[in-house]
């Protein structure tokens, strides 16, 4: 069924000189997905383009993690950027369309809880307190309701919009269920709007990706999070070591096995893994340990040899 549709889809454009799906040209790599991972993949694409000796076109779209998987599992993309692991429903979709993939961890992001710098009393929040503030149906509206010793001032909440992976991850990590959140907070898909909101409101409490906090450390104050074992501030070290929990989230890329047959895709992924230690910190995210990338490179090497084997076969 899927194969027929793909075949039909490819006959028409052939007549109209229009590209069809990924792999239409041997030198293109099409990437879609999370806007959180976008800056990392962009850095890689830029440097890959500079380093390449032959013509390469890497294109990156930002449909969001969910939107990216939709296109990826329809066979329209070589690589999908994701700010969370692939969901059960997306695995099903890929399976249905015969798309197999390889998952690579490429960085970590620490969702950062922030308050206004004028807020002197909030230094640390426990996960339980965050849940009480953000859970669906919560009517908590004053700092004094979080902890009795805090002032009787209103809390203004700022958070990621429902289309972002940030929203999915935060709700799952704090409330235990994706999408479970109170509905009376200021939401935006654009993290800069949230930064401005928290910066301009002394009673604000918000959350977004670490990169947006790292760019605005003078205008925002980060709050340590206590998962029950002590307060931990989000720093590159604590996020990488895994002590900043539960808000540290993996950033990943998914590569289609079909696309891996093309050397340009393998070259790009290899470049990606070899240069993550160098370029990931530049983008405001936290790189993984060198051993992780080495392990991934070994996985990739297997594809190199199988590709050579199949192309050598008559």
């Amino acid at each position: 069924m899927a194969a027929t549709r793909l075949a039909v889809a490819c006959v028409l454009p052939a007549a109209t000189l229009v590209a069809c799906g990924p792999g239409s040209a041997s030198y293109t790599v099409s990437v879609d997905g999370s806007s959180t991972v976008y800056p990392i993949t962009e850095a890689m694409a830029e440097e890959f383009g500079i380093a390449a000796t032959e013509k390469v076109n890497v294109t990156i779209a930002t449909s969001g993690t969910g939107g990216g998987f939709k296109a990826f599992c329809a066979g329209e993309r070589d690589i999908s950027n994701a700010s969370r692991h692939i969901k059960e429903s997306e695995i099903e979709l890929c399976k249905k369309n015969g798309i197999e993939y390889v998952e690579f961890n490429i960085a970590i992001d620490g969702l950062t809880v922030v308050v206004n710098p004028a807020n002197t009393f909030v230094e640390c929040l426990t996960v339980a307190e965050l849940e009480r503030i953000w859970k669906p149906g919560s009517t908590l509206s004053r700092w004094s309701e979080v902890r009795a010793e805090w002032p009787n001032e209103p809390i203004k909440l700022y958070g990621a919009g429902t289309n972002s992976g940030t929203f999915d991850y935060f709700t799952e990590a704090i409330m235990g269920r994706v999408g479970a959140i109170r509905d009376d907070f200021s939401a935006s898909e654009d993290d800069n709007v949230l930064v401005q909101g928290v910066e301009g409101d002394r009673n604000a409490l918000g959350f977004f990706g670490y990169a947006y906090y790292a760019e605005n450390t003078t205008r925002l104050k980060s709050v340590a999070v206590d998962p029950g074992t002590g307060c931990v501030q989000p720093t590159p070290e604590s996020i990488q070591a895994g002590t900043y929990a539960p808000l540290a989230r993996p950033l990943l890329i998914y590569v289609s096995r079909e696309s891996m047959k093309r050397s340009v895709v393998r070259d790009f992924v290899r470049f990606y893994l070899e240069h993550s230690l160098e370029y990931v910190p530049e983008t405001g995210y936290i790189a993984l340990g060198a051993d992780v990338y080495e392990q991934h490179l070994k996985t990739l090497a297997v594809f190199d040899s199988t590709a050579v084997a199949t192309s050598a076969a008559p």
Partner: peptide, 16 residues
């Protein structure tokens, strides 16, 4: 389908 990152100049109507 406009893309976020395009490092080439499109040369024909089927290009991204």
């Amino acid at each position: 389908g406009a893309l976020g990152f395009v490092a080439f100049i499109p040369t024909n109507p089927s290009d991204q």
